[in-house]
Design a protein around this nucleic acid. Sequence first.
RNA 1: GCCGACAUAGCUCAGCGGUAGAGCAACUGAUUCGUAAUCAGUAGGUCCCCGGUUCAAAUCCGGGUGUCGGCACCA
Length: 653
Amino acid sequence: MPAITLPDGTVRRFDGPVTGTTVAAAIGPGLAKAALAMQVDGRLRDLSAEIVDDAAVRFITRRDPEALELIRHDAAHVLAEAVQALFPGTQVTIGPPIENGFYYDFARNEPFTPDDFPAIEAKMREIVQRDAPFVRSTMPREDAIAFFQARGEKYKAQLIQDLPDTEEISLYSQGDWIDLCRGPHMRGTGDVGTAFKLMKVAGAYWRGDHRNAMLSRIYGTAWRDQKELDAYLHQLEEAERRDHRRIGREMGLFHLQEEAVGSVFWHPRGWTLYRTVEAYMRRRLDAAGYQEVRTPQLLDRKLWEASGHWENYRPHMFLTHVEDESDKDRVLAVKPMNCPCHVQIFNHGLRSYRELPMRMAEFGACHRYEPSGALHGIMRVRAFTQDDAHIFCEEHQIAPETARFVALLAEVYRDLGFADFHVKFSDRPEKRAGTEESWDKAEAGLKEACRLAGVDYELNPGEGAFYGPKLEFVLRDAIGRDWQCGTLQVDYVLPERLGAEYVAEDGTRRRPVMLHRAILGSFERFLGILIEEYAGRFPLWLAPVQVVVASIVDDAAPFAEEAAAALRAAGLRVELDLRNEKINRKVVDHIESRVPVLAVVGRREAEARTLVLRRLPGREQETLPLAEAVARLAAEAVPPDLAGSAPGRVAAG
RNA sequence: GCCGACAUAGCUCAGCGGUAGAGCAACUGAUUCGUAAUCAGUAGGUCCCCGGUUCAAAUCCGGGUGUCGGCACCA
């Protein structure tokens, strides 16, 4: 006699076990038609599932957030059926819903190509049209294994084999086609609808392990209706326009070329942006009690052996040698990290606890031999500069230093336009240095510090650095990819390996703890993210070219030059556009090159000694006397950390 | 690194066995024109590299390199 409580609090009683379909029908024909699945006591279930006991039930319709996941999951099944119908002999593996869509991994000797999409999509529509109901059944484990083995689905058989004993083995059929699946599903394939599209093919390792076979993955996107699908496709196009590689070229910020794979050629405007951010960071670090240092690029392998990099990190290191006979056996490595160098500075001379915490910063240029497939624009490169620092401290200082760091990082991100970021906590990896005790201590200490600093994180198991656990501060790019920028790592290992010590209050020698930390991560990556975040339309203080003074007629040129000089004298980055072009054309060009302010000078302005300021890409304009225009723009161009203190003059970078 | 796709003028792209083309940009000239592209002309290419097939290769085949999308990697 289940009593079913609905979200609005009403209770319905039934004589015996009922399916969701029956309950929905009892409530009303509208709901019976709209319900795709249900939530029973918070758990998502098939509509055809029986409810035996009293329960709170909520029906899922197409409008509910859960519907998207169901649509995508079912779409993956439809894709799998379509592929097996068209390409006999293809084995199915897994096909989960993901953000914005779904994928399915197939085992097939010949990989799919986008040319196969039209046929597959057509078959999918056919299957959706047929609207076969999803029917759930269960099978004893051994039977299920035998069942899939007999069909030549060895991946499915293996999946079942590896399911925990407690797990019930459920299968879903849609017409003649059947698949191992946990569910739940909607009523039938027709509920998938037609707002789906296959997007791309890719190779993917079975179970994500590069030692396993490579499967052929098909990605698709699926939505409630065509309108949502169109909106998503449009959004993808927009994202493509923000791509830092495209904007970098369009704005003349940087380029990459074959002779220096993974290294950036910064052009004048890009370098201006870089210097602006660097100068900002330097001020921030100075104010936060850091001391900046500079350390060598090339260091003898002895140091890397001592630090543990030689053992743990060598495949990623660039090694050098010289031809000189007397020196030819010496191996110098280009530094992949700055930390060992900073320990060398710390070790130079006897340290006292009074000097701790010692915050040692460096804009350190590092080189790492990254796998070719990992390279991506300026976000993932082989040569980059970190806003790196190491805090040498005593154990009890870990928590307060973490809190200070997180506060600084949040302030920097906010100033640079990132209100949102998320934090991951990565604990001990398989390949690591140091004892279990030191890892226990480091992980516990960092967790405690997070608690004190009020940092919420998600756990990222096994992803720590080889010397210590880390916090990762993650920002998202235009294409929806996440990038680790900031980081904080607790390290008991390197001070030990490199023999760092200080004299404690009681006169004994102790090991400091090292906190490795970065806020931007690398300038290259961060600037890539920054470019995408603003789509190249930077706030005035960051814009490489802040103002273009454009003349309307040649007669106005002398005053335009005078105005540009005045703006430059106030510290602004100014370009002059005296081309023999109409003002319409100049407006278009400078909107395209993403200049924030256009100062227009015609005959009238030249006579009245005024400027017409137009904020691009907007249309509003205002006329101001030259001196006032200069003062206003100069004030506006003050970096956020200097705002409030003497406005007017702006550090050049 | 693995799977797949791609590589033609500065940029975006067409050409896909018969000796290279468009638009924009560049350059020259005319125009001096008040806020989203003035007109005309000129110039511009080892068709990524190396081999092969062919009377003939940008085009077909093989091998490299790079880029792009995933996967793996990201200390």
